[in-house]
Design a protein around this nucleic acid. Structure first.
Length: 297
DNA sequence: AGCCAGGCTGACG
DNA sequence: CGTCAGCATGGC
């Protein structure tokens, strides 16, 4: 991978299969927003502007020293062309393109993912983003960048220091105590990093020990922040899409669903994100009518 | 105005 | 093991 730093820009050269806007707004991360010619975001307290420049990916605001962490965050080292090609050759999944083309699964900060996806349960992406922004404004460190004021994602200490009432005030609803308890547990010494090297099943079990984390949220955290590329979060959208694409519109038993998932291989989580994008783009109506008349072949 | 959302908990079979 | 009401809030 060729990386250069010039004119205050960090540049990853010749990056294929990376649609910046799509990747930032596909529902995996909640803090990116469109700004000027790219996406404005803040990761590890570092505010940046991210955009495609021809065949390159450019980042303004990142120092040369943070090239490696940014490459990791953006999953630069992974060969997405190979994954996309394999998916397009699968009859059941080819329909996910072109919507899915260019989506990269980011490697987010584990604690941020932990809290974000606890907030995500039974919630919609717009509102999730709002709650997280208010949480960051409430107790995250402020950063000025390009005339904007951004806030770092708060530390476990900061969030644990909030009252349940404060968390309710930013709109967290019944999840407020879950958020506080999770931050306290991290502060107590639970090390999310240890989940990286565990088996998927072990890591799932560990995360489900947190109040407010079930199978779906656990898999989101593992896929989006801990490099378990075979974690496969199933929400209502994925459920509908799998029904339409794999089971002719019929509801599958849990065992059958996960059998289909495991047939997708070690990158099933990334494929999941393609399916998610497809499902949300198509919409509920079309998705549900799709399966029903799909019994011809 | 209801229905729905990147679901989970606790109770009960 | 599976099923199911209840859940805070606001987008649409």
């Amino acid at each position: 991978m060729d990386i250069t730093f010039e004119n205050d820009k960090l540049i990853f050269h010749n990056v294929e299969c990376f649609d910046v806007d799509k990747s930032c707004n596909c529902g995996q991360a909640f803090r990116w927003r469109k700004f000027a010619n790219g996406q404005l975001g803040i990761v590890r307290g570092q505010a940046v502007l991210l955009w495609r420049e021809g065949s390159d990916i450019a980042i303004k605001g990142a120092t040369p020293q943070t090239a490696a962490p940014w490459a990791h965050y953006l999953d630069i080292g992974r060969d997405y062309s190979a994954i996309e090609e394999a998916v397009m050759e699968d009859e059941r999944l080819a329909v996910c393109f072109p919507e899915a083309h260019g989506i990269r699964v980011f490697n987010q900060e584990p604690f941020e993912a932990l809290i974000s996806f606890i907030i995500s349960q039974n919630n919609n992406i717009k509102r999730i983003s709002g709650i997280i922004e208010r949480l960051c404004a409430l107790c995250g460190d402020p950063v000025e960048f390009m005339g904007e004021r951004l806030y770092a994602f708060p530390s476990p200490e900061k969030i644990a220091g909030l009252s349940v009432g404060q968390l309710e005030q930013i709109g967290a609803g019944y999840r407020a105590p879950f958020i506080k308890a999770a931050a306290e547990r991290i502060l107590d010494g639970f090390d999310l990093e240890t989940l990286r090297d565990m088996s998927l099943e072990e890591a799932r079990t560990e995360l489900k020990g947190f109040l407010g984390i079930g199978p779906k949220v656990a898999d989101c955290i593992l896929l989006f922040s801990l490099q378990h590329s075979d974690a496969f979060p199933v929400d209502v959208w994925i459920d509908r899409a799998m029904k339409a694409l794999f089971f002719d519109g019929n509801k599958a038993k849990k065992a059958e669903l996960y059998e289909a998932v495991s047939s997708l291989g070690e990158y099933s989580g990334i494929i999941q994100q393609y399916i998610f994008q497809y499902a949300r783009t198509l919409g509920r109506e079309k998705l549900e009518s799709k399966g029903e008349k799909n019994y011809s072949t």
